[in-house]
Amino acid sequence: MKIYKIETVQHLNTTIEECWNFFSSPRNLETITPDTMGFEIQDYDNKQMYPGQVITYTLKPLLGIKISWMTIITTSKTNEYFVDEQRFGPYALWHHKHFFEATDTGVKMTDVVHYALPLGFLGRIMNTLMVREKIKTIFAYRYNKIEELFNSKK
């Protein structure tokens, strides 16, 4: 199985507490996901993120085909990091780490995603043709939305 990695870093003009409060709420996933993805949370317990939390949602990542996805928060440390992993969904592997570090000017936020596609050779072709660029597009949208939310304040 071929494993791919995407990493992004963003600096936020906010406090670590405000940053954590936003990103540890599963409800805010809708805010930072492109509307074209058709992202809809189906179920979660309306609590701040914690290890063992289950989040289910539907989305349309490619070609408008609706899929179901189940994420588990595997680990979390308030104001520092959390990890979500796909349990059911389109990937053979989806492991997403979120790190938050207070700095002199705000917060350094780092996202690291490791993912793999099913179907062996066919999955590698799909990654080259469309999946990697789609993920990059989603993360670019998130970057811009987060800039708008945290870094355009007067």
Rank of each mutant, 00 (worst) to 15 (best):
V54S: 11
E80Q: 10
P90N: 03
V9A: 13
G106I: 04
T75K: 15
D84F: 07
K47P: 09
P34K: 00
H11F: 13
G64I: 14
V107K: 00
V107S: 00
E40Y: 02
N13Y: 11
P51F: 15
L93I: 06
I55G: 04
T71Y: 05
K47G: 05
H98G: 07
T14D: 05
L93R: 08
D104N: 13
Y57E: 13
H11S: 09
R132G: 00
V107M: 01
F88N: 12
Q48V: 06
F82S: 05
K2E: 03
S25Y: 04
K136H: 14
F121I: 06
A116P: 02
L122K: 08
T56G: 14
N46Q: 09
K5R: 10
I6T: 00
I72M: 12
S76E: 10
V113P: 05
P118D: 00
V131T: 00
M70P: 06
K66S: 10
Q48K: 12
K136Y: 05
S24M: 08
I6E: 00
Y81A: 03
L12C: 01
V112F: 02
L119V: 09
D43F: 09
S76L: 07
F23V: 15
S24I: 07
D111Q: 04
L122A: 09
N13L: 09
L63D: 12
M70Q: 14
G64N: 14
G38M: 01
I3K: 11
G52C: 10
F88A: 07
Y44E: 07
T137P: 00
L12A: 01
R27L: 15
L122I: 15
K97M: 03
M130S: 08
I55A: 02
Y44A: 06
K108Q: 02
F100I: 04
T58A: 00
N127M: 04
D35G: 06
L29W: 13
M37Q: 05
V112Y: 01
R124G: 05
H95I: 07
I67C: 10
G120S: 04
K66D: 10
T110V: 06
F100D: 03
S68E: 13
T14W: 14
N28A: 11
I73N: 14
P34Y: 00
T128E: 07
T36L: 07
E85N: 14
G38I: 00
Q10L: 12
I73H: 12
H98M: 09
N46E: 12
E133C: 01
E101D: 03
I55L: 15
K97T: 07
N79K: 02
